[in-house]
Amino acid sequence: MERLIEILEDIQPDVDYENCTDLIDGHYLSSLDIISLIAELEDEYDITVPAVEIVPDNFNSAERIMKMIERLQED
């Protein structure tokens, strides 16, 4: 989780990633931030994030992102 928060802070600083639960709905992360994040996640965790996974529910909090990563690693 620490590494994920580092990645997020690198892409978009000034957000409380530990507690924020509306990263997408609250407009904290833009579509371009998401592209950057996905590229970083794919490199870091050796996963492929298909377009269908890019929904607010999967990106609204660091916890949700982590859950998606774990699910994709199992696939």
Binding site: I11, D33, I35, S36, A39, V49
Partner: peptide, 24 residues
């Protein structure tokens, strides 16, 4: 943006242009 070629483009652009301009 999720097409394989575009993802490769994003990865290489991020290395050259950094986190902000790369995904652009």
């Amino acid at each position: 943006t999720s097409a394989k070629r575009m993802k490769n483009l994003t990865s290489s652009a991020r290395k050259k242009l950094g986190n902000h301009f790369g995904p652009l």
